[in-house]
Design a protein around this nucleic acid. Structure first.
Lengths: 342, 342
DNA sequence: TTGAAAGCGCTAACAT
DNA sequence: ATGTTAGCGCTTTCAA
């Protein structure tokens, strides 16, 4: 565990190359307006000295940090069992890296953390924030707005009904759900149930809405509340089977839930898809491909969503301060992926 | 997406409180050596103005960043399916947060990223690094050593045989494996197989070693190479059943692998644990508790490992520059958790 | 105990 | 095209 040594400064490079600090600075930042031979001399000096710019000094004057905060507010354990966040993080990371921005991860567990995060964002450590706002009553979005940091949300924030100015990236939860249920209808199913996600999250609420759009006025017993987890899916499916033994199709709010449903159906001796067809949502490959039977699901490109969130933010950041047409939210399409379960 | 506004400076607070910048600085940094009435005045001014120190300016003079990089080099998709990393991240995040340090996440996918990471670390943006070095031939550790940044590794690095000075946190992979196999022996099992992880990772190699320690000279057909994934576990179990139909116990290198094995055993009509006992490693709850039957496994406290990595690094960072007794690596104990599968 | 002043390393006018 | 210079906002001697 070696100690950090003091790094060479611009000054040192300038001395070595026999030029002024300003010239070195120009070369380091792209080299525009500096004649070729000088550029070469400076480059060499940089190389020889192993010069790396001091980011703190640079930020102090530019007020840019080339860093973006990713705020994940997930008190539940979902983040640790659902590959969803990891995939989105990967997309974000790729995009940020491509634009030389750093990713500062802010994990929050409870209310105390919220003020901490708000303070951090307000402190001007980062140029912007990518926020996963998962619950309707979450105070975080408000705090963040107050911090005055450009922000893009992952998933439609609960308090934004389109009227609001919040920028977010989401998939077409409602449309995807409609597709799923229509497919089930097309299969000739009549008793189509829905196992929901936690309805204080817009993704879950929107999927339920899509289900309702197609079903019209469904038997209320066909809708069971759940929580996006395998265990929750199991419990819900059990309940469902108890109160509607004639159910012949299930649209689960996500793949994990579908997995739980599949398990219970098998235990209870129902054949999938012969007796009961099952459709999930997300298309998290390790789940959908390895389940038995493999899972028909509504695919959303999670990694791409992460990438787009970052891109949207970065664009807003570079597009000089004037609000040259505020960036608007993005709703990505979904596609139904047919496998064995429906 | 509001624009950042210019924040008040030390100067402004000083003016408002009617004191010098130096005094404000002292108060903000703990308030030692400032008389109570003044402290109060300054605190109030800070409050009223909503002052937050500019970290860049501070870093420029203190050369501290209160930020730690977490480098995860995982080209495989494992990071996205195994809760392992997420849990460790959570532990790290908690510890860093408790000490007002930020977490800068560096995800690397390939060789190109390595130089990028090395440059970043060398650039003095962070005070230290937490590195997950997963493969024996990974060039990253070397690059990082070269960057001269205090570093703690997650898991024993391949090139460190204890002789090396690298600091790391790991669990007792070998001992845990021994416990597992001994338990199987105690159950009266005679044909105990091992499905390994990728052997270029020390955790997998150490677990295999633990298996060998107890088994002595096992039938080589009882050892099947795999890769820490569910799919890999399925393939390995299939192979195992084909070449050793008399196998009566399996020690899988991790829980995901065990899950795959369980699945294949069920398909092939073997009862667990009656016909074949199965033990995993990690104790990732959503896997072990929800598998059918629930999984007996070797528990390691993953979140705690993350926390300890951060603590070790932070300690090295604060303990003034003099190497006041270099921190040494930590090996956490494991415990066998008995459930239904063995 | 408090204040004055000197930078930390860099960028960005402004001169030349 | 290149150099000179004035800060960015903060901490930290050093004096008072």
């Amino acid at each position: 565990m070696s100690e950090a040594v003091s790094r060479p400064t611009l000054e040192a490079v300038a001395a070595r190359a026999g030029v002024s600090r300003a010239t070195v600075s120009r070369v380091v930042n792209g080299g525009d307006g500096v004649r070729e031979p000088l550029v070469e001399r400076v480059r060499q000096a940089v190389e020889e000295l192993g010069y790396v710019p001091n980011q703190a000094a640079r930020s102090l004057v530019t007020k840019r940090h080339d860093a973006v905060a990713v705020v994940i507010a997930e008190p539940e354990t979902r983040i640790f069992t659902d590959p969803f966040f990891a995939l989105q993080l990967r997309g974000i990371s790729k995009e940020l890296t491509a634009h030389d921005n750093q990713l500062v991860l802010l994990l929050t567990e409870g209310r105390d953390d919220h003020t901490r995060v708000a303070r951090y964002l307000a402190g001007g450590h980062v140029d912007g924030a990518l926020v996963f706002s998962l619950h309707l009553d979450d105070p975080l979005p408000g705090l963040i707005e107050g911090a005055g940091v450009p922000t893009v949300f992952g998933g439609r924030p609960g308090w934004s009904d389109g009227s609001n100015s919040a920028v977010y990236v989401d998939c077409d939860n409602r449309g995807g759900a409609q597709d799923a249920v229509r497919h089930l209808v097309g299969l000739g199913r009549r008793r189509i149930a829905h196992i929901t996600g936690p309805l204080d999250q817009t993704s879950a609420a929107d999927r339920l809405q899509g289900y309702r759009d197609v079903m019209g006025e469904p038997d209320p017993r066909l809708v069971v509340l759940s929580d996006f987890t395998v265990g929750g899916g199991e419990r819900a499916m059990g309940e469902l089977l108890d109160r509607c033994p004639d159910v012949d199709a299930v649209f689960a709010a996500n793949d994990l839930t579908a997995l739980g449903a599949l398990r219970v159906l098998r235990e209870r001796g129902r054949r999938v898809p012969e007796d009961v067809a099952v459709i999930g949502f997300d298309d998290v490959l390790p789940v959908t491909e390895q389940s038995a039977p493999s899972l028909t699901t509504v695919r959303q490109d999670i990694e791409e969503m992460g990438r787009l969130m970052a891109r949207l933010l970065l664009r807003a950041l570079t597009r000089g301060k004037p609000a040259t047409g505020a960036p608007s939210s993005l709703i990505l399409p979904t596609t139904l992926v047919r496998r064995a379960s429906a």
